[in-house]
Every structure is written in structure tokens, then in C-alpha cells.
Design a binder for these strands. Sequence first.
DNA 1: GGCAGCCTGGTT
DNA 2: AACCAGGCTGCC
Length: 221
Amino acid sequence: MASLERRGKQLGIVVDDGRALVVQLGMSGQLLVMHEAPATHRHVTWSLSGRGAEVLVFRDPRRFGGIVPHGRVQAMLDRWERELGPDGLDTARAPVERLCRGARHVKAALLDQSLVAGIGNIYADEALHAAGIRPSRRCNRLTHDEAARVLEEARRIMRRSVSQGGTSLRDHVLPQGDPGAARRLIQAYGRTGLPCHGCGLPLKGGRIAGRATTWCTKCQR
DNA sequence: GGCAGCCTGGTT
DNA sequence: AACCAGGCTGCC
């Protein structure tokens, strides 16, 4: 194995001969490095040279994930450039202007990987809550400052969460099999009916952009 | 845009 | 037994 590439939720494993594998974890996928491969939902097992008897395993109970081979790294990178927006962790390239365009709900735009890559349902709710913006707000009703703020909050929250090992609710685990610790940072996602940490009022739940959504009707406008 | 569908497993 | 879930694609 030569190197790893990543853009948003796409992970590229580049091997020495220049070919690449794109791993998409989907909703339940796991990449594990272990001495003994897990017994269930094991889809691919690679043996790792120079790491004793350890193996790299792609495990995916729900099978929403997948692996796409590319003959050359550049083909993978070209495709990412075509289909994905700038990575959500990238400050310099935050697509503020683009987020202000169109009549769709801002939450739908945040989940659109071709606009900004890497934001999923949890971080969309968290970023909108932190930025004080209702998920149902139309993009073309956002001020430039609001669009910048929500992208900045998404970046900050994801960065912090990743540094804690990620937001493990059910299936996400780190390569050694341990859950990430960022679940305790959650302010909004999945807290429908529980008090808002900003104002104390119960958070509202609903469906926006086809996804379970939680927000505060007072703190988020 | 929304929404069904892909799959399995956990919860109500 | 029915419903729900962290993602994404493709169809209306």
C-alpha cells in the first residue's frame, strides 16, 4: 500500500502500482485492522505486509457501503473533482456563494456532496443548530454571513468530532474496533423533545430533505 | 426538488 | 409485525 486519499466521505486506497480502491462506508461500514478477522458481515479481507499477521477488513452489516476499483489514481481524483464539492474540512474553499443559490432547503444543500463533501445527517443538524439557522430555510434566503457561518460551524464540529474518533451511534468504530467519543458533543441530532442546550425549550423533530431532522424553533431562524 | 429502494438489525 | 436508521442513486 502506498498512500491514502480522502475527499468528504470517499476514501481512496492507492497501491504501489498506481491503482486505487475507493471505499465508501455508507451507513454501517467499518475498516478494521485486526489479528483475527471478524466472524460476521466480513466482505473483504486484505493481508497487510510488514504488519505481522494483521489483516485489513471491510465489514458492513447493512451493505450500503461499497468498494469501487479505479485503474489509475488520477481517474479516481478526476471523478472526485467532477462529482464532489470541496471537502467540508477545507476552510479556504468553503462554497459560500454556491450555498446561497437555489430555492431548496439549506439542509438539503448541506447534504449535497456535490456542493460540499463530507457533511452527513448528523453534522448537518449540528451545524445548523450551532449557526442558528432553521433547516427548512431556503438557500436563496440565506445572507452571505449566514451561509459562511453554517459552513464554518460544520467545519469546526466535524474537525472536533474527528479528533475524538467520530460520532459512534451504532456501527461506526475506529480501525481497532473501539467506538469514537464524539457522541457526547451532540447538541441537536436525535434529541427531539429534549431541552435545547441554548434556551431549554424542547427541540422539534421532523423530516426535511427526506431525513430525520431535529432543530430548535427559538434558537434557529 | 421529493422519494423509493438498496440491506440488515435493533427497538417499539 | 412494523418502523426506523449515520448514505447514495436514480426515477418521477
